[in-house]
Design a protein around this nucleic acid. Structure first.
Lengths: 351, 351
DNA sequence: CCCCTCTTCTGGATCGATTCAGTCTGGATC
DNA sequence: GATCCAGACTGAATCGATCCAGAAGAGGGG
């Protein structure tokens, strides 16, 4: 068993407080005694104040929690999530804070428990439409938090983008190029309706708020171009990763009037679409593809996409957590997006 | 102020123990009373047992620390590190454990402190040659840990690859293709010697053990092909990322006898090299490039590389931490590597 | 020589739970 | 009717520190 602070105190012949001060408040005791304490401690193999005990007494932990709505190990398959995390990490470094990545077990009760058991000073919640009442659980703990959810509550700190008009810009790009028969590719569009081609009666049926907003923006653009929602094809991918994107696009049958473009709600899905289409030969290569996020892999692949600033999103989220704005109304920050046109999109080929 | 367990106990009119049991040991009290306690707790806004206090009493935390030798926010620029982390996360999920990402401040003292203050049950240390005595600090805390260092101590748990022969296989691939004038590209070869082209008298001068081992393997292969170490060009990149790789390769002057190949010690550097060379026109395109790791971006780029299983490395590391082998001698696991030949490497072009 | 201040150090309360050896109660057993 | 027992609940000790009011002693000023 490792010695405790108590043991060191006895060994040196001073009080616990003094040993504690030797570590945490060097100005509270003579340099000489301090050195003697530190030396005996080292010699006894005392590992320094127990972080847990210290946290308990001090009332704060020195770590912030990062919550991903998806399975944690899955989160890293999306480069955008990784960039977000990078941004959070950067801010955390500056504040000498650690990051606790909390895996959320599937199922409501498990997720609640995970959030309740996390020893942190606050949470950054990545991209939840508050699935499973996670936000409420955090609120219940009374801890500060920042969301990137598409539906922040009025007083909540939030960082995000205008999902709807961002998606709209991608769709307008396609309509301007003449595309009218377009497939929309998103993750888990209707959770219980399976994957591949789906009938979605109404955009508002889509439960995931981010996806819903993006699809709504897309619908706006196409409506303006005279294309009804019901004339658009919806493809649902099983996961938000490249392979699932490719798989979903393969469900797109050629038919007499094949789609001339695929509009994906994330870059990983779009890249998967490109994989599938390029494997589909000349025919497939002509199909335009757009993505969303502008992850690092997008540029080399020539993917046209909507850029949102990933690291900045993470940095801003963490900043909002560490330095809450005095004025609560300044706690919702909307970041800009840009349409980045590359080679993956072009005019509709004449048949 | 949030109520404590004590407050709930008083409100219900039972002892603290009973409230505690209501949360942690449902079988220790009648279902009816338990429900009453839980109800009052909810109603009072009691957030459930404080995780820190619980950890202190129970003696374990439910989180493992992940340490990256580089700056934390930087770690994510290397896709291989991300895959490692993914593997660790997967194992952690299975064990209902969280991951604490600990940023290590630059400088020895800061890093020590960060490690000493981390509330975790153990550590996975990614790719350290034990810079700054981090391993010793962990050992001092008496916590279990797993390294991926190139130089594990005899009793330590470790997961890694045979760096030397893995690198050798890449170099042999190049010698077999006829390459004799080759540039070796690595991160931070001689930390104080700056970046770009460097004179390295001896492989053993390289301080970072992983880099040293890989370069030694490369030297083996070239020696066997009759090329002396001193005839190889060494390029040092400022960081282990794509941009730094590109920058370092630009330091390669054409000269009368230009290099015909670049052997990089990581894929991100190799991809940077490709960026730089491809920008260099026809001439540059002919230069063969090999990488190391086989990150997801390698395949699309056609990069010839040495594959090491990233996620498996992370999974194995975490597994070693969670379920220590009964026989300590089984605590060092070497994973296999494979040379993956793609289009970025080819025979020496005839001048 | 007394009072005051400063520095250095101490003791006890406290952070918020968990644990374990009991106590108490009501019912079954012989 | 005494004994035993399982089930339900309690109390005090404990985890390992930090904090704060205050004590002891040294030095300075009047």
């Amino acid at each position: 068993m490792k010695p405790t602070l108590q043991a060191v105190a006895e060994a040196v012949g001073v009080s616990r407080s003094t040993v504690s001060n030797a570590y945490g408040r060097p100005d509270q005791l003579s340099a000489e005694l301090r050195q003697r304490i530190l030396d005996t401690a080292r010699q006894m193999g005392y590992p320094g104040p127990n972080p847990t005990a210290r946290s308990l007494r001090r009332g704060f932990v020195g770590a912030i929690g990062v919550l991903f709505t998806s399975r944690l190990s899955y989160a890293f398959t999306d480069a955008f999530a990784v960039r977000f995390l990078t941004g959070v990490a950067e801010a955390a470094e500056r504040h000498d804070s650690s990051l606790l990545l909390v895996p959320l077990p599937v199922g409501l009760a498990g997720a609640r428990k995970a959030v309740e058991n996390a020893a942190v000073d606050g949470f950054c919640v990545y991209c939840a439409g508050d699935e499973g009442g996670i936000i409420d659980t955090i609120r219940g703990r009374g801890l500060p938090f920042v969301t990137t959810s598409a539906r922040p509550q009025p007083g909540d700190r939030w960082v995000g983008i205008d999902e709807r008009s961002a998606a709209r810009s991608a769709a307008e790009h396609l309509t301007a190029l003449g595309h009218r028969r377009v497939a929309l590719l998103a993750h888990d569009v209707l959770p219980d309706a399976g994957t591949g081609r789906l009938r979605v009666a109404n955009v508002t049926d889509v439960p995931h708020p981010t996806t819903r907003d993006r699809l709504a923006g897309v619908a706006d653009a196409f409506a303006a171009a005279g294309v009804a929602w019901s004339d658009l094809t919806v493809l649902s991918a099983a996961d938000n990763d490249r392979a699932a994107g490719a798989a979903a696009v393969r469900a797109l049958d050629a038919g007499p009037e094949p789609c001339t473009a695929v509009l994906a709600c994330s870059d990983v899905l779009a890249l998967g679409a490109l994989d599938a289409l390029r494997a589909g030969g000349e025919e497939g290569r002509r199909v335009s593809v757009t993505g969303f996020d502008d992850i690092p892999e997008a540029a080399p692949a020539g993917l046209t996409t909507v850029r949102q600033p990933g690291e900045e999103k993470g940095r801003t989220a963490a900043a909002l957590l560490f330095d809450p704005p005095a004025d609560a109304s300044a706690g919702q920050i909307q970041l800009p997006t840009t349409l980045v046109v590359r080679t993956s999109s072009g005019p509709v080929p004449r048949s």
